[in-house]
Structure formats: structure tokens, C-alpha cells
Amino acid sequence: MQVTSLSLEAFKEMDYWAVEKYNLSIELMMENAGLQLARLIAKKANESSVITIGVGNGNNGGGGLVAARRLAAWGFNVNLDLVVPITKDLPKAQLERALLFGAKEGIPETTDIWVDAYLGFSQRLPLSDAFVKSIALANASSAFRISLDIPVGISKDGELLGFKANQVMTLAAPKTILEKLPNEVEVFMADLGIPKSVYEHFNIKMPNFKEHQLIAL
């Protein structure tokens, strides 16, 4: 019997399987995730919108930095909340590109769209003080809030104890933890480029990405 969603542990295995069996690099999936995130953000933005993207030192942050680069290339005002030093090779390379394309470091005085690409599915609670401070600023602002993959600070029961997302763009497959989000939170699913055989291996139906790379759930 097919499953309709994946636990975070199962998705980690799926992600690893795609890398190991199909040579689907983390960098390529990061590019796919970041492009889809940029498209979702652009739907909520206008020419004068101020966008802040919060990133950590991991692959989720790297996806946020790809989105920052894409949005800056399209002419948007993009700012980066760098909560911790970006030292890992892939996120560091993405940060350098984003800055070259026109993204700026620092949190602006006002933000219209605040994006949570802080930690993703590898997050561990409790969060460090630095992340708690940034999340508090985001939640206290009037910004529309979007999370990449899963909101930072989410509980095992889907309660938004951290970043109060209005939208979530999850990656590749539905996540069980997101099924318990409040009804007003919009959830989208983005194509990472994972082949159908991987979905079959994990006994979950492949979404109709051939027609829609970004699907509303």
C-alpha cells in the first residue's frame, strides 16, 4: 500500500538514495529548490517589495541563497539575514554568487516578505539564541512569511513554535509533519529533479511535476 506522505527520516533516506544511486548532486538539487522558492516569492512580491531571506550554514540555507541570487537577478531588493558564519563549501559559494548578483547583507528596517531558509529538516531543538532572535524579529514584523521545506522551530505535532509561516514550500514529496499545520498556512511542493524510480522505491506516488513544478497541496 502506497504512503501519501513521508516522515522526515524517510525523506532523508530518499534524498540520500537519489544522491547515491543517481549521482544527483546536492548542488543540483539546491539549484532546483532555490529556483522554485524564488518563483514562489516573486508571486507575492512587486517591484518595490523588500525581501529578507534568513539562512543558516547548511543546504537549506544554500537553497535560500540560490533564491536570493535569482531574485536579485530579476531586479528585486533582496537582503540576507546571516545568522551564523557561512563556512561550508556549497552555501559559501552560493553566498558569494548572491552578493555578486546584488543581494545585501543585513536585516533592513522594514521587510515585506521574510523567508525562512534557516535550518530545514536537519534542525534540532532547542534553537540557539541567534536563531531565536531572528525568528522573533520576523514574527514581530508585518512581513508575509515563507518557509523553505519545513518551518524552523516546528514541533513534531506540526505546531509553529518558531517561525510563523504563512506559506511553506516543501521539497520533492509531502511531509507528514506538515499535515498538522493550521489550515490557514498554504503549503506548496516543489520538484527537486528526483526520478520516478526513487518514488517507487519509497512507495509514494510521484507528484505530477511534468505539468507543474510547483504544486499547491
Rank of each mutant, 00 (worst) to 15 (best):
D116L: 10
E109G: 13
V78I: 14
R124M: 11
E96A: 14
L71R: 03
R69D: 04
D81Q: 09
A68L: 10
G64L: 03
L95Y: 05
L95H: 03
A73F: 12
K88Q: 11
A117D: 03
V66T: 10
A140G: 10
V115F: 10
A98G: 08
R97T: 14
G106S: 06
R70H: 14
R124C: 08
K92C: 09
F101L: 09
V83S: 11
P85F: 11
A130N: 12
V84R: 12
A103S: 15
L125S: 04
L80T: 02
L80I: 05
F101H: 08
Q123M: 15
K133T: 14
W114H: 04
L95R: 06
T111M: 09
A103V: 04
Y118D: 00
L90P: 00
F101N: 05
K92Q: 13
K133Q: 15
A117Q: 05
R70N: 12
A73M: 13
L119Q: 07
I113Y: 10
Q94E: 05
V78S: 08
R70E: 15
A117G: 11
N60L: 01
D129P: 05
L125D: 05
R69T: 02
F76W: 10
L82E: 05
V115I: 15
F121W: 07
T111P: 06
D129F: 12
L82A: 03
S128I: 11
N57H: 05
P91I: 00
D116H: 08
A67W: 01
G106D: 05
S128K: 15
V55Q: 01
V115H: 10
G56V: 07
A68I: 10
A67G: 07
F121E: 01
G62W: 00
F121H: 08
V83R: 03
V66L: 04
E109M: 07
L90I: 14
L99S: 09
I107Y: 13
I107R: 14
K92S: 15
S141Q: 03
D129T: 14
R70L: 11
W74K: 11
W114G: 01
I53K: 08
D116G: 08
G106Q: 04
A138C: 06
S134Q: 12
S141L: 02
G58L: 02
L95D: 01
A93Q: 14
V132S: 12
A73L: 14
L119V: 02
Q94T: 02
D89S: 13
I113E: 09
Q94M: 13
A67F: 03
E109Q: 14
R97Q: 15
A67S: 12
L99M: 12
I113G: 09
P85M: 11
I107M: 10
A72H: 04
L65I: 04
A67E: 03
S134D: 06
L125C: 09
A73Y: 12
N57Q: 03
L119N: 02
V83T: 14
L137M: 12
F121M: 13
P85D: 08
N79C: 12
G62F: 00
D129E: 15
T111S: 15
A138T: 00
N139D: 06
N60F: 02
